[in-house]
Write a protein that binds this DNA or RNA. Structure first.
Length: 452
RNA sequence: GGCCCUAUCGUCUAACGGUUAGGACAUCGGCUUUUCAAGCCGGCAAUCCGGGUUCGAUUCCCGGUAGGGUCACCA
């Protein structure tokens, strides 16, 4: 970069508060943020709320808090276009005065239409603009006609307000979604009419749904909130979003925001749209979970636990501590903890599980007498274990298990402790339950055998 | 349909015009201290088509095809 970098860089993030903070908006925010910050510049934030019908306060709040959650901060005060009517009015008046725009009397075809609107006087020329990502883009603006820039002097429309605000905000770089490419020639025409300098453009590839169309609500989760609620980490979302259309050129894939600040390069942004792939996000989220400080992880687990489980964790802090690593290796997002609660995945840590006797036989074994002898032998071995840790328990049991056939000894032990087809290994389970409870559960199984 | 953008494994992507076209996710198979998970190892899998330019095209040019975006008194 030569010319661009010698001036103070100012980018902007101009969402319209007509819906929840969209994942695509978040990606645009990230790239604007990275570009501005790494060049010692600024990122301005403004709300494009000129559409009074669709703009809602709740969406403003949602977007602002979402940005904060992601850790993408902006500079200065928030600009709200709805509060700048007078400013736009001045530009409109000046344009009309100068013959660059005019009040047009219209035939009313639709409900809500005005009898007169303000149209831009299109000079019908060819516009070529430079795009940081795509190179030169050329348009013939003739086909645009005299497009409407305001419903009235007090009701400006998008193209006008964007240009005025970018001009007054001294925006140097407009980084936005590819869906804005065809808006660019209109905006350039208005810039020229009001004497505004042309910013440098960078049109980002779109984030696509699996059917390759622009990501939309009907394809599932599209708002940042959706992912926050499912227990994805903001760091993971940032990381994944950065990888949608950009990569550092190395084989590294896990980044923190500050690492992105070092490595991101807008010139390396791809041109083609990218399909949003939840599997990869899950993997990245898991990687970031691994990087979390223990305390934060614990807090998150608690946040997504059922009330019932939370109480148990408070009551049995030792068990909680021991289950933590098991949870960590089993989840990819914190919502999975909630699911584990619902599925009763934690119950056996606290209660004697119920199960069918046949289930504790390994494969096609079925001799209750042999099984009982083995269980009694396990109790005997366990009783001799001093320090009751998974490591020591395994050590003590190993030779016997190997002798008898590991499955024949370890499967029943694991099953009688958990009452489940799937669970952590019997040594870990024993340690968590403690010697007393472990032996109690083995005896419970022996009783079951006797009764049969 | 007009205009515009885009085109490498299923997906995200790498490859100064010369590589056995690389990595990651997913998938499949194996290993590890029974199950599940995790981890490790390995397999499958791609340059849209046709012309040029060139000694040599994934790479440059043109055309086609396909996909997407956009054509509001929304943003």
């Amino acid at each position: 970069m030569n010319k661009e970098i010698t001036e103070k860089i100012i980018t902007r993030l101009p969402p319209s508060p007509t819906g929840l903070f969209h994942i695509g908006t978040a990606r645009t925010a990230l790239f604007n943020y990275l570009f501005a910050r790494q060049n010692n510049g600024q990122m301005l934030f403004r709300l494009e709320d000129t559409d009074k019908e669709r703009s809602k306060k709740e969406f403003e709040v949602n977007i602002i808090s979402g940005l904060e959650w992601l850790g993408l901060d902006y500079d200065g005060e928030i600009t709200k276009q709805s509060e700048r009517t007078e400013v736009y009015k001045k530009y409109l008046e000046k344009m009309i005065e100068g013959g660059l725009a005019y009040i047009s009397e219209e035939e009313i075809k639709k409900e809500g239409q005005r009898g007169s609107v303000i149209r831009f006087k299109n000079p019908n020329k060819e516009v070529i603009f430079k795009d940081l990502i795509r190179g030169d883009v050329k348009f013939d603006t003739t086909e645009l006609g005299d497009f409407v820039i305001a419903k009235s002097l007090e009701e400006p429309l998008y193209h006008l307000t964007v240009v005025v605000d970018d001009f007054e905000g001294e925006i140097t770089h407009v980084i936005r979604g590819e869906d804005h490419i065809s808006n660019t020639p209109r905006q350039i025409l208005i810039q020229e009419a009001i004497g505004a300098e042309r910013p440098i453009y960078a049109h980002l590839p779109l984030i696509l749904s699996p059917d390759r169309s622009k990501m939309s609500k009907r394809h599932g989760a599209t708002s940042v909130d959706d992912y926050k609620e499912k227990g994805y980490l903001p760091e993971a979302i940032i990381n994944y979003l950065a990888l949608m259309g950009w990569n550092p050129g190395t084989e590294e894939e896990i980044f923190t925001l500050s690492e992105l600040l070092e490595k991101f390069d807008i010139k390396k942004v791809n041109k083609g749209g990218a399909i949003f792939n939840i599997e990869k996000l899950n993997w990245i989220n898991k990687e970031h979970i691994k990087l979390m400080p223990e305390e934060d992880f614990k807090e998150k687990v608690l946040e997504f636990s059922s009330e019932e489980l939370k109480e148990k964790f408070v009551k049995y802090p030792r068990v909680f501590e021991e289950i933590l690593p098991i949870i960590k290796e089993r989840i990819e997002k914190f919502e999975d903890v909630t699911k584990m609660c619902t599925d009763g995945e934690f119950d056996y840590y606290f209660f004697q599980p119920e199960y069918e006797l046949e289930k504790i036989f390994w494969k096609d074994e079925n001799d209750p007498f042999v099984l009982r002898l083995r269980m009694e032998k396990i109790i005997e071995i366990l009783n001799s274990v001093g320090e009751f840790t998974a490591e020591k328990i395994k050590e003590a049991l190993w030779d016997y298990a190997t002798e008898e056939g590991r499955g024949s000894v370890l499967w029943p032990l694991r099953y009688l402790l958990s009452g489940r087809d799937k669970s952590p290994d019997p040594f870990t389970l024993s340690e968590i339950l403690g010697k007393e409870e472990t032996i109690k559960r083995i005896n419970y199984a022996i009783e079951k055998i006797q009764k049969s």
